[in-house]
Design a protein around this nucleic acid. Structure first.
Lengths: 250, 250
DNA sequence: TTGCTCCTCACGTCACGTGAGGTGGC
DNA sequence: TTGCTCCTCACGTCACGTGAGGTGGC
């Protein structure tokens, strides 16, 4: 009965010597013999076991699962394979979702980065990262259908209009805070135009969709960073809420 | 300007304290301040950077890629995202292929393991592993079309017939070796029936397909373990080859 | 003596998890 | 004084890769 040394076995199976050392060390495959000088000597049975290890590894099993499969019954093996299928299914679903996200972002980034002529002209990494942050937040709080609706309405209104609205909000919030600070009641006559404008802008954004309105409020409840960035703390939100209620509600 | 301690920041971003320690240690995000007692104090800019880190990580980037993206220009970011798409595409293709392999094997194993009544009855893990080894070898040396052909012919011939042939081969090889040992020329009259039977069985297997015949010979050249298991070493193969040539060739 | 193969440590990878042992702040 | 949060080590994870330093076999 012939035997093999690590190098020979490695060449035959496509494994490295280090890998065979590793399998020996963790007790997955220890050679049945050693030469006088301490060389590992693998016999036929070892080689047969190694082939099975290699095959099972090619199926994506961990070394622990390989060990379990080799030690267990036919039933164990079936169970391990079914579990592997399940894991692969989950990973594939997660990867597909991730791929679609990255693809959407890359498209948006390319769009933002491309001027009339070349690539990435004029747009800073900071602006792209802001775009990505905003999109991520949107994906977190809005359903795909809501995103499609928002996208469609955004196109109707035009980029120019959206920029104008984004510039207007800080002024409205500052005005509301000013009223609060001066002790003006939210129901006061002075606050009415402000409240009406807020209602107008919100309605424009939600398109009257109650689901989108709920998502907006979830963003402000779940994202302290958004509250901080916009300055819309709970006190201001309540103040504006009461002011809008006084002009007929949202 | 307010600051945050690790715990607060962790809660807000969904990260663990250990993760923030880690980002600090590797210099990805170090807090701009420390309290008198050594507590990490993160300011607004730190929080903004952390949000970007989190978003980029959610895209599947490594910490090194995140660092690069944050340090680089808009162009860097675009490049990183495109590279990520490429990696994801490759991984998805590899996973799909793996999934299909495992699925085929699991189906075959379930088929082999299921008797008339229940699951895995009578079949040992060893037999299932042999099935898997054989299928893996086939997948390695035959194209999908060839596999389909072989499958179809196997069904025609029937499992019974295949088992009989598999039992016959060792006898034919032993007979050839015996002739060799006795110094009988491969062209001798005595060897003719043996040669004719070998030719018959090979033709039955390949169905006269030259591609499949080439694949068979590649298996014996590339897989020493098959040569050893069957005892078909190069000397015997040459002997049989010359014997078959003497009766008209393959 | 020269190559080639073999041996045994032992650190490094990637992104943290998980204690251990101790201190600051209310 | 009691909880709670914070701190700094430092080992463990998974499957090996990659030297370092040394010996056996032709």
């Amino acid at each position: 009965m012939s035997t093999w040394k690590v190098g020979e076995l490695g060449r035959r199976t496509g494994l490295t010597v280090r890998t065979l050392h590793h399998y020996d060390r963790i007790g997955l495959l220890s050679p049945s013999g050693r030469s006088a000088a301490g060389y590992r000597l693998y016999d036929d049975a070892d080689v047969a076991r190694l082939h099975r290890i290699v095959v099972l590894r090619q199926l994506g099993l961990s070394l622990e699962q390989v060990r379990e499969s080799l030690a267990g019954s036919a039933w164990t093996l079936e169970r391990v394979l079914r579990a592997q299928l399940e894991r692969l299914r989950e990973r594939m679903a997660a990867e597909r979702a991730l791929y679609e996200r990255v693809e959407r972002l890359a498209a948006r980034v390319a769009e933002a980065g491309t001027g009339a002529a070349g690539a990435a002209e004029g747009v800073s990494a900071d602006e792209l990262l802001e775009t990505i942050e905003a999109m991520t937040m949107f994906e977190k709080y809005y359903t795909p259908e809501q995103l499609a609706q928002l996208d469609a309405r955004g196109k109707e209104l035009g980029a120019e209009h959206i920029r104008a609205v984004e510039a207007e909000w800080p002024r409205l919030i500052a005005a509301a805070k000013d009223c609060m600070a001066r002790g003006v009641e939210p129901t006061a006559e002075e606050v009415r135009p402000l409240a009406q404008r807020c209602r107008e802008l919100i309605r424009e954004f939600t398109g009257g969709d109650a689901g989108i309105a709920r998502s907006v409020s979830r963003v402000y409840q779940g994202e302290p960073s958004v509250r901080e960035r916009t300055g819309l703390d709970p006190a201001v939100m309540e103040y504006i809420g009461r002011a809008v209620a006084a002009v007929g509600g949202w």
